[in-house]
Write a protein that binds this DNA or RNA. Structure first.
Lengths: 322, 322
DNA sequence: CTAATAGTGTCTTTGAGACAATATGGA
DNA sequence: TCCATATTGTCTCAAAGACACTATTAG
């Protein structure tokens, strides 16, 4: 279907269809925007790019970067890339290394209290970027750790609800497993944090307040995280979080940060090297060994595989260290 | 982002943001529709629901069923369900058994020559339904075998192109493998066709003409097929193509029809039963044995699993009979 | 020197796939 | 009776995961 027919009632000629197509209540009253869930790793912690709202509906709250699609002038993908560039202040060279894919569309009535808005959400994987400068927009942009976000109800909604006939926005979160992000997993650029996150922290006195997100952006971020966690299982996209050259340990850090739990170093290492086309060796080795000693790690770059075969499946549940 | 800010230029107060939000060139000029890729099995062959266009831009061509989203009155999911019901003439009881999920959004400029239109595509898995009555719309609706569609260039685009920084509509086609649909695989309700499809047919004299699709619907259908083929790997959604009770052989027929190749009967049988929650036994057995004899197959119904663990992976390539 | 760390070897278990065997019922 | 067919058994191979070991280097 495109720009005629609008459904409802039996056909009565064509006159009616014509009128329906141009009924201002049916057609032009929806705004189309793109929103971007941009993920990156900073110091081994997964961050999302957010902007602080200056305007009224959710003033002061954090929201996803995004903006209107320029009707007839750009594709949705181009609109997303443009908005991401504006918001991060990235030049074309840096943008080259960012993976951008469509996540899904959100159009519940009332999701924006002012008017009907359908937003096409995008998911971006970025290497550690320079601090976000508050793009071309009113408020500040910043990378916020996902563990500081209040994703509560939205996150639960990914995997184990509803029955088959249910029809809700479920843009293929491949193997979603409810598993909230433990605060500080992964590497700070080299080694992975050893212990599980849940019991390591000494009793925090004042619980760090979780940031609420504007509109339905909590759900969009939750869907994006589900997608990211699933996608690095069967694609080499984890390398999009790293520089051109990286060590296997750094790559493991990406998986640990995104999945939120430690992985078995030895098995991970062997498995990555065994998947054809995942990584390829540069001759070189890292400048230094591990943080507190150890041999220098070999350097690799991303291979040419677009899918991992076999895949790197997530560990089953709360047990550890696959 | 929602209904303010529109990117580009520095902030200058709020006045500008307000104006931008209501600049008619930026906001109201995009129409939003839903289109549905509804798949079903008829006689062991995968079919898509299509409508024949009466109007001008692609008059006489086949297109996906769909229609405008009623701004502010319904969610995208509701719009898709409504359009599907209208187009198939399905009552609520039948709709209950249809799986509906969002596929992705398409908004290239010029995809509709008349005006900017962003469509949110949905994917539906339906059991064998009564013949489509030409719903509420101008032209006829019909189930068309996917093998009769010209999906050419669009299908190639799913998996192995572009590099990481590429940004194009790739709504997570999980494990796409280019593999065109061999005409008549699968079962006609009971047993699966034995031989491979490609050589069985006696030399066809006049090549059956492939039907072109209107707008960018060929790509949308191709994306939907990719998604369907991937999704039955790790979800129990193949059962959505069958009745409430079914045999393992019928279930295998679904996989063979969607994947387009024969599967090893014995191994498939054992694997399905070994995945927890995929199917559960009703005590009963089928009324008849196989087409030309054999024991009566046991009947099963869909289990309560939402994900298959372990998954049923597609056979690797052109070799056969996993 | 000492301890931490990159990388490898090995063993066990699980699952995939090929092949064979058994039993049932349509013609 | 004959043979296609549903279902189960067995064997082999690949991969996952647990665990142990070696070599290297920061402090």
């Amino acid at each position: 279907m495109d720009a005629d027919r609008q459904g409802g009632g039996a056909d009565d000629g064509g006159e009616r269809a014509f009128l329906a197509a141009y009924d201002p209540r049916d057609f032009p009253a929806i705004a189309v925007t793109v929103d971007i869930v941009a993920l990156t790793l900073r110091g081994g912690v997964l961050h999302v790019l957010l902007v602080e709202r200056g305007g009224r509906p959710f003033q002061g709250a954090w929201a996803l970067p995004g903006g209107f699609v320029r009707a007839g002038q750009e594709s949705l993908d181009e609109a997303a890339a443009r908005e991401l560039a504006e918001e991060t202040g990235l030049d074309a060279a840096h943008l080259e290394r960012v993976h951008l894919e469509q996540l899904g569309s959100y159009g519940d009535p009332g999701r924006d209290p002012r008017m009907p808005v359908v937003t096409v959400a995008y998911l971006a994987f970025a290497p550690d970027l320079p601090e976000a400068r508050g793009g071309g927009d009113a408020s500040a942009a910043a990378w916020i750790p996902v563990s500081r976000l209040a994703l509560g109800a939205a996150a639960e909604d990914g995997a184990a609800r509803g029955s088959v006939p249910r029809s809700s926005g479920e843009p293929d979160a491949a193997r979603p497993r409810p598993q909230e992000q433990g605060p500080g997993h992964g590497t700070d650029g080299g080694g992975s944090v050893p212990g599980p996150a849940d019991d390591a922290a000494p009793a925090e006195s004042t619980a760090p307040p979780l940031l609420p997100l504007a509109f339905d952006h909590a759900r969009i971020v939750a869907d994006g995280l589900d997608r990211a966690r699933a996608k690095i299982e069967y694609t080499p996209l984890a390398t999009a979080f790293l520089g051109r050259e990286f060590t296997i340990v750094e790559l493991r850090g990406v998986y640990e940060s995104v999945w939120g739990g430690p992985l078995h170093a030895g098995n991970f290492h062997r498995k990555v090297l065994s998947v054809p086309g995942f990584v390829e060796s540069t001759g070189a080795t890292a400048a230094r060994g591990g943080a507190r000693g150890g041999p220098r790690a070999r350097l690799y770059r991303a291979g040419d595989a677009r899918l991992l075969h076999p895949a790197l499946l997530r560990p089953d549940r709360e047990d550890g260290v696959r």
